[in-house]
């Protein structure tokens, strides 16, 4: 390894880039969007899982999958088990959330 690095400066450059990359990924706040999901109190008694920024919609192609958009770009999502009704009180938090912060408001 030492010989390889001595003979190949590009390997050293690659290692340096990799090190910086790993350090940067260890830094929090690298996510794109932070949206909050939770019950909408205004919809009680039939509470709804909504993105409280108001930009969420359920997909019509995949049951149980909720997405949030900013303009035309999908930026976060959450999935529920198909048999779970996320709009029922006491429903669990979604799984497989991406770039969203999910927590019940109650």
């Amino acid at each position: 390894m030492k010989n390889l690095i001595r003979k190949n400066a590009m390997a050293l450059v690659a290692l340096a880039i990799a090190a910086v990359t790993l350090m940067a990924m260890g830094t929090p706040e690298s996510k794109l969007a932070m949206k909050k999901w939770g019950y909408n109190p205004a919809a009680l008694p039939g509470a709804q899982w909504v993105d409280i920024t108001g930009q969420t919609e359920e997909t019509d192609t995949t049951p149980g999958q909720y997405l949030c958009h900013e303009n035309e770009e999908q930026i976060c999502s959450g999935e529920f088990e198909e048999e779970v009704n996320p709009n029922a009180p006491g429903a669990p938090a979604p799984s497989n959330e991406t770039y969203g912060e999910f927590e019940p408001l109650d």
Partner: peptide, 26 residues
């Protein structure tokens, strides 16, 4: 050119490997 491409591909590949689950779901 080599360094420019390494600056692209190393972070891209590293992110996929470290957070493979997110990459897969994406």
């Amino acid at each position: 050119i080599t360094i420019a491409l390494l600056l692209l591909w190393i972070p891209v590949a590293t992110e996929k490997l470290i957070d493979f689950t997110t990459f897969k779901h994406t």
